[in-house]
């Protein structure tokens, strides 16, 4: 699909691409150290992300124990088809993200670029589904969080609580997707400039890790919100 050949092993003239000339930071002893440190830092950041969402999961667990019927009703209001579609979209984007890293590792910049763009488009699709097929119809029906709730056909007293948790958890997740889109967009831009190659792909790897965590959280949110009743 691409006319540009992998750069590995290729004898090439012309100016060096940025990724071939990247130097280590002045305080590092080796580039490997820098790479490992970057990844460790990212994993620690992912730990904070998990704990951030654990607050929402904890709220969900406690409120579900208190008001099981409200949560059963709540999941019936959500359409599993849209949730499932979004799950698939995120899974595919996770795959393309991992593939982009793999292509970069072997020096196939063009395919990596394609994979990144697909990832970005998947993220966009996720958000569009979320916004136009979930948030806007539900909000206009009156299925809103907390005191904004105005849905006359509710069957349980605690449904506003369900919507609070629904909007809080999916909203915070969606904000992560938006941030992820920004980061992937930045990757696409930099990759076009030739910043990433077999010896310099830490940023891509870390953003990939971030993107997989976003996917991971959705893997749990999807059954909790859409499937269990």
């Amino acid at each position: 699909m691409s006319t540009i050949q992998p750069t590995r092993g290729e004898i090439r003239t012309g100016p060096m691409l940025p990724h071939e000339t990247v130097q280590k930071g002045h305080h590092w002893r080796t580039r490997d150290d820098e790479f490992d440190a970057g990844k460790l830092g990212m994993w620690l950041f992912l730990a904070t992300e998990l704990l951030l969402f654990s607050g929402l999961f904890c709220g969900y667990a406690v409120m579900r124990l208190l008001y099981p019927e409200a949560f059963a009703n709540g999941s019936h209001y959500l359409d599993w088809r849209w949730g499932g579609l979004n799950t698939l979209v995120l899974l595919v984007s996770s795959y393309t993200m991992a593939a982009a890293i793999r292509h970069t590792q072997v020096g196939d910049r063009a395919r990596a670029q394609m994979a990144l763009i697909v990832t970005w488009l998947c993220a966009l699709a996720f958000l569009l589904v979320k916004l136009f097929l979930e948030y806007i119809p539900k909000w206009s029906e009156g299925k809103r969080p907390g005191v904004l709730f105005d849905y006359p056909y509710a069957q349980h007293e605690m449904e506003p609580m369900w919507w609070s948790l629904y909007y809080a958890s999916t909203g915070i997740h969606a904000s992560h997707v938006i941030i992820g889109m920004g980061l992937i967009g930045w990757l696409i831009y930099r990759n076009a400039k030739g910043w990433y190659g077999p010896k310099n792909y830490l940023a891509m790897e870390n953003i990939g890790l971030y993107w997989h965590i976003v996917d991971l959280i959705w893997i749990f949110l999807f059954p909790l919100l859409y499937l269990i009743h």
Binding site: W43, L44, L50, C58
Partner: peptide, 16 residues
């Protein structure tokens, strides 16, 4: 990194 993840999951478990 695995250790970091496991400790985090332990923390999440204790919390919830």
């Amino acid at each position: 990194n695995l250790l970091v993840l496991l400790f985090t999951l332990m923390g999440v478990g204790l919390f919830i």
